[in-house]
Amino acid sequence: MQKIKLFFTKYYEALSYLFFGGLATLLNFAILLVLQAAAGREFAAGAGNVLNNALCILFAYWTNRTFVFKSKNHGKAAWSEFVQFVSCRIATAVADQIIMWLGVTVLGVTLWLFGKDCGPLLVKLVAQVVVIVSNYVFSKLFIFKKK
């Protein structure tokens, strides 16, 4: 039991990043599915994906700041941290948008499961791998770096 506790203590940051990143990814997929059901495939992969990313950026900032990197910044420092976070997330959201556009609109990736077109979900999965890795690097090295 002590070894397990030591493991979680030693790797808390990475494990909590994966956990909360997983929650953000689930939120991203849930919003995608709702938008696709409500407004169609093209909207969900286009303008809806922009809204989806904005909501997920706010969720990710709160969880990263509070639980993962445990930032203690206040005032100007906290505002600077937020601006850096959002700027980096916008960059990876652009990458997500490009991957979604290429996969869904240009390539027309289609995957039929249980009578539903899950192509956008498959493309979103690929995009999320790129986004999660990039976001961790930005957060760890630039935004929430320990001083």
Rank of each mutant, 00 (worst) to 15 (best):
residue 3 K to D: 14
residue 5 K to I: 14
residue 6 L to M: 14
residue 8 F to K: 10
residue 9 T to R: 14
residue 9 T to F: 13
residue 9 T to Q: 15
residue 9 T to I: 11
residue 11 Y to G: 10
residue 12 Y to R: 15
residue 13 E to S: 09
residue 14 A to H: 03
residue 15 L to A: 13
residue 19 F to L: 15
residue 20 F to M: 06
residue 20 F to S: 09
residue 21 G to R: 00
residue 22 G to W: 07
residue 25 T to G: 10
residue 25 T to N: 01
residue 26 L to Y: 00
residue 26 L to C: 14
residue 26 L to Q: 02
residue 28 N to G: 09
residue 28 N to V: 03
residue 29 F to T: 07
residue 31 I to P: 11
residue 32 L to G: 08
residue 33 L to C: 10
residue 33 L to V: 09
residue 34 V to D: 02
residue 34 V to K: 04
residue 35 L to G: 12
residue 36 Q to Y: 07
residue 36 Q to C: 04
residue 38 A to F: 12
residue 40 G to D: 08
residue 44 A to D: 01
residue 45 A to D: 01
residue 45 A to K: 03
residue 45 A to P: 03
residue 46 G to E: 02
residue 46 G to S: 09
residue 47 A to H: 00
residue 48 G to L: 05
residue 49 N to T: 00
residue 50 V to F: 03
residue 50 V to Q: 02
residue 52 N to S: 11
residue 53 N to Q: 15
residue 53 N to G: 09
residue 54 A to P: 01
residue 54 A to C: 14
residue 54 A to E: 06
residue 55 L to A: 15
residue 56 C to K: 10
residue 57 I to D: 10
residue 59 F to V: 10
residue 60 A to M: 05
residue 61 Y to A: 04
residue 61 Y to S: 06
residue 61 Y to R: 03
residue 61 Y to T: 06
residue 62 W to H: 12
residue 62 W to Q: 11
residue 62 W to S: 08
residue 62 W to Y: 15
residue 62 W to K: 11
residue 65 R to N: 08
residue 66 T to L: 12
residue 66 T to C: 06
residue 67 F to Q: 08
residue 67 F to E: 06
residue 68 V to T: 11
residue 68 V to Y: 07
residue 69 F to K: 07
residue 71 S to P: 06
residue 71 S to N: 04
residue 73 N to R: 15
residue 73 N to W: 00
residue 74 H to Y: 02
residue 74 H to L: 08
residue 75 G to L: 10
residue 75 G to N: 10
residue 75 G to A: 02
residue 78 A to V: 05
residue 78 A to L: 15
residue 80 S to H: 12
residue 81 E to T: 06
residue 81 E to R: 05
residue 82 F to A: 13
residue 83 V to N: 06
residue 83 V to Y: 05
residue 84 Q to W: 12
residue 84 Q to D: 08
residue 85 F to T: 07
residue 86 V to H: 06
residue 87 S to E: 01
residue 87 S to V: 11
residue 88 C to Q: 06
residue 89 R to E: 09
residue 90 I to C: 13
residue 90 I to L: 13
residue 91 A to K: 00
residue 91 A to E: 00
residue 92 T to M: 03
residue 92 T to V: 13
residue 92 T to L: 04
residue 93 A to D: 00
residue 94 V to S: 01
residue 94 V to G: 08
residue 95 A to S: 10
residue 98 I to H: 01
residue 98 I to Q: 03
residue 99 I to Q: 05
residue 100 M to P: 04
residue 100 M to I: 04
residue 100 M to D: 04
residue 100 M to N: 08
residue 100 M to R: 07
residue 101 W to D: 00
